[in-house]
Amino acid sequence: MFVQCQRLLATSLSRFSPSLTVRCISSCSPLLARNTGNNRGEKLLPPEERLGYLKAAEKRVAVFAGLSLIVGYFALKSAFSKMSSRKEEQDKKKAELAKASLPRPLVVAGPSGSGKSTLLTRLFSDNPDKFGFSVSHTTRKPRPGEENGKHYHFSTRESMQKGIDAGAFIEWAEYSGNMYGTSKKAVRDVQEQGRVCVLDIEMQGVRNLKKTDLNPVYVLIRPPSIEALEERLRARQTETEESLEKRLTIAREELDYAEGPGVFDYVVMNDKLETAYETFIGVIKKVVNLDKDEGSTPQ
C-alpha cells in the first residue's frame, strides 16, 4: 500500500513539476508511513482514513506545485526585466556615443543691429560645406519670397505650443508678438549632414538653451556701445521712435545678461567689420576645423 501511495503522488506531481517529485514524496512519505502501516505486520487503518490521508498528501503536492509555478513566474519576470534594463542601458550608451561624434552646435547671439547676420553670411560664404543653419519654427506669417521648410517652418501658435509642451524644442522665445523656436530635429538634421549647426537666436532663446544638454559653443556679437547701436538702427530708417526705444531697451537687458559670468564662451566686439570678422573667424577656428580637406570636427 505504501508503494502504491508513492506512485500515486509521483503521478500527480509529475503533471506540475517533475523536479519537485522526489522532494514532495519524501516530505509526504512519513505521513503515509505513520498512518497506513508497512510490510512488517503493523495494523492498517480503515480504508476511509487511508483515503483521507492520500487526499491530504495530494493537496500537499498541489501546494508544492503551485508554489513552484509562482516562484518560476517571478524568476522569469525578473530575468526579462534585467534583459530589458540591459538593452535600455546599451541603447543609451549608443545614443551618447552617436551624439558625442556629432559636431557641437554653434550659438551666435547678439542684439538687433550688432552685425551678427553680416558676420554669419560671410562665414557661410567662405565655408559653404562646413556650416548649416537650423530651420527655425515661427508663428509669424511668411514674407514675400520665403519658403516653408527653407527659411522657416511656419506654424500656428497652437501647434508650436503643443510641440514645446511635448519637449520637441530645445529653445523658444516670443518676440514682437510672434513665437520663434528651434526644434531638436532641426539641429539633428544639420548635424547628420556632418556640418556644424549654427543657431542664430535671441537672448531669451539662449536662456532656454542653457537648461538643455545640447552643449553648444556660445558666441556673443556685441556693439561697441549702446550709442553706436542706436546709430546703426537709425541708419536703417526702418524704425519709429517708439520701436527704436523698445529695441534699445531690449538690447540693454540682453547685454546685461550676456556679460554675466559663464553665459558666453566667446565675445566678439563688432566695431569695424573687417576686424570683427577676423576675430570671429579666430574664435570659430578654436572650436571647428576649417581645413578644406578635412571634416568639421569640433574640438
Score class of each variant (00 low, 15 high):
Ala33Arg: 05
Gly110Asn: 04
Leu229Gln: 03
Leu8Gln: 11
Glu294Ala: 15
Leu120Trp: 07
Ile170Ser: 08
Ile226Arg: 05
Asn289Pro: 03
His151Arg: 09
Asp291Ile: 06
Val267Tyr: 04
Arg247Phe: 03
Leu220Gln: 01
Pro261Ser: 02
Phe169Leu: 07
Val190Met: 00
Val263Arg: 05
Glu254Thr: 09
Val190Phe: 01
Leu199Ile: 04
Gln161Lys: 14
Val288Phe: 07
Phe169Ser: 00
Tyr152Arg: 02
Gly52His: 15
Asn178Met: 04
Glu242Cys: 09
Val217Arg: 10
Trp172Asp: 07
Tyr152Ser: 02
Ser84Asp: 02
Gly149Lys: 08
Arg252Glu: 10
Ser27Gln: 12
Ala228Ile: 10
Ala235Ser: 12
Ser78His: 08
Ser176Pro: 01
Gly282Met: 07
Lys77Pro: 00
Ser134Trp: 01
Gly262Met: 07
Leu119Val: 02
Cys5Lys: 15
Ser176Arg: 15
Val217Thr: 13
Leu97Trp: 09
Ser125Thr: 11
Gln204Asn: 10
Glu231His: 10
Cys197His: 01
Ser101Leu: 11
Lys285Ile: 06
Ile164Thr: 10
Leu273Lys: 11
Glu239Ser: 05
Gly41Leu: 01
Leu67Tyr: 12
Gly282Trp: 08
Thr275Gly: 06
Gly37Ile: 13
Asn270Trp: 01
Leu97Val: 13
Thr279His: 13
Arg195Asp: 00
Leu20Val: 08
Arg60Pro: 03
Met160Leu: 15
Leu54Asp: 03
Lys43Met: 14
Ser29Thr: 11
Glu192Pro: 04
Gln299Ile: 08
Lys55Tyr: 14
Lys286Pro: 06
His137Gln: 10
Pro18Glu: 14
Arg247His: 05
Ser183Trp: 02
Val287Met: 12
Leu248Thr: 07
Ala79Lys: 06
Ala75Thr: 05
Leu229Phe: 01
Glu274His: 04
Asn38Val: 04
Val287Ile: 13
Asp293Met: 15
Pro223Ile: 02
Val219Phe: 00
Arg222Gly: 08
Gly37Val: 07
Ser14Lys: 11
Leu54Val: 13
Pro105Asn: 06
Thr249Phe: 09
Phe169Ala: 00
Gly181Met: 05
Leu255Met: 12
Glu48Ile: 14
Ser176Val: 09
Val283Arg: 11
Glu192His: 10
Ser27Arg: 13
Leu76Gln: 06
His153Cys: 10
Phe16Tyr: 13
Ala95Trp: 10
Asp200Ile: 00
Val22Cys: 11
Thr118Asn: 01
Leu32Glu: 01
Ala276Leu: 01
Leu120Asn: 02
Trp172Val: 02
Asp189Thr: 07
Glu294Pro: 01
Gly205Met: 04
Thr238Ser: 13
Gly181Ser: 06
Leu220Asp: 01
Thr182Glu: 09
Ser225Gly: 04
Asn127Ala: 00
Gly167Ala: 03
Arg50Trp: 07
Asp189Gln: 11
Gly205Arg: 03
Lys246Arg: 15
Ala166Asn: 12
Arg247Glu: 05
Lys150Leu: 15
Gly66Tyr: 08
